[in-house]
Amino acid sequence: MKIAFIGLGNMGGGMAANLVKAGHQVHAFDLSEAALAKAREHGCETFSTVPEAVAEADAVVTMLPNGGIVKSVYTADVIGKAPKGALFLDCSTIDVATAREVAQLAGDAGYIMVDAPVSGGIAAANGGTLTFMVGGTAEAFAKAEAVLKPMAKAVIHAGQIGSGQVAKMCNNMLLAIHMIGTCEAMALAEKAGLSPQKFYEISSKSTGYCWSLNDYTPVPGVGAASPADNDYQGGFASALMLKDLRLAMEGAQGARANVPLGQHATKIYEAFVEGGNGAKDFGAIFTTL
C-alpha cells in the first residue's frame, strides 16, 4: 500500500519507519530537513510538499501539533490533492470539534476519515507498540485497522468520528491525576520516614497500584525504569501533558462535565510549565514536592 505520512516528529518518525518495516511504500513529508533525512534512512521516500507526498496515496496518515495545523493541512494540501476514495487517518491529539469538522469536509469531498490519536509515547512509537483510539464508522475502522496494526499493540474502535479524541483527552486527564497523586504519596512516604523504595514495594502490590507507580515510577532509582532515572529527559514532555489537559478542560466545558481534579491537575502543570519545565517529563512534578 502507498501511504503518505505527514509529520515526522518524535512520534511520527518512528511510526513511519514501522510502516516501512511492514512492507508499505511510505511517502513522507515534514518541514524539518533533519526529520526527512532520518525518514530516508528508514526507507521512506520523501517529498518537498504535502500535495506531492499524497498525490498517489492509498492512505494518508498525519501526526501534527494541534488542531489549527491539522485543519490547515487537510483543507489546503490533502483534500482534493490525494486520490478520491483515499483513507485519511489523523493521529494527532486535537480538539473534538476540529476532528469532526475536518472529517466532515473530507467526507463531503469523497474521502474516508478516522481520528486515531495514540497512547504510548516515543518508545512505543519506535517499537510499534502504540495504542490507537479510533473514531469513525465501522467501515472506516476496518480499513484503518490494517494501516495502524504495524504501529500498534492495540487498535480500538472508540465509536463515531471524534470518539478517539474523547478517549485520548479523558485518558490523559486520568494519567495526569494519577501521576500527581503518585508523586505526592511517594514524597509523603519519604518525609514521614519510609523509604521510597519500600513504599514502592508495598503500594505497587496493594490498592495504590497504577501505571504511574508500577510502570513509570517518577522517583529516580526506584521501581520501574523511567525518565526519572535520566533527569526527567525524554518520555512525555510536561508541555504536551498540559496541552492535553487543556483539551480535556475544553471538552469538559463543552460537555458540561464536572472535573474538579482535572481542573486542579491543569493548574499544577500550568505552573510547572510556566516555571520553565515544559521539556521535562511529566513525572518531574515529583521535584516540586
Score class of each variant (00 low, 15 high):
E190V: 09
V147K: 09
T287D: 01
E250P: 01
K2L: 03
A97G: 03
K168T: 12
G127L: 08
L87E: 04
I69Q: 07
G251Q: 04
K198N: 15
A99F: 05
V54I: 03
I3M: 07
E270C: 14
V118Y: 01
T207F: 02
G254A: 15
A34L: 00
K81N: 11
G221Y: 12
Q160W: 01
G12P: 01
G221A: 14
P150I: 13
G121Y: 03
L64Q: 05
I79Y: 00
V155T: 14
L105S: 04
S204Q: 08
F29A: 04
G221W: 12
I69C: 08
K2Y: 03
Q160M: 11
A138P: 05
M169N: 08
E201A: 15
K191T: 09
A185M: 06
K2I: 09
T288Y: 00
P65I: 02
A271N: 14
M179T: 08
E52A: 15
G251M: 05
K149S: 13
D77M: 05
L148C: 14
E101R: 03
Y232K: 06
P227Q: 05
A106M: 05
K81F: 10
V96G: 04
E274S: 15
A237P: 01
E190M: 10
N277Q: 05
A4S: 12
K198W: 02
V54W: 00
Y209L: 15
M169C: 11
E52L: 07
R256W: 12
A35D: 00
G136T: 08
I202Y: 12
N66D: 15
I177P: 07
D58V: 00
T93N: 13
R40W: 00
F88S: 05
G7K: 02
A154Y: 08
Y200A: 13
A237L: 02
A152W: 01
A17K: 06
L289Y: 07
H178W: 04
A152L: 09
E33V: 12
P117R: 10
A187G: 09
T266G: 09
N172K: 08
N230G: 06
V60A: 12
L247V: 06
H27I: 00
L175P: 00
A248E: 09
A116C: 14
P220L: 10
I202E: 05
V73F: 11
L148V: 15
G14M: 08
V73G: 02
S163D: 14
L261E: 11
A271V: 05
Y200E: 11
D30I: 01
Q233G: 11
M169L: 15
K21T: 07
R256A: 15
E270Y: 10
E139N: 13
M113I: 03
A86N: 02
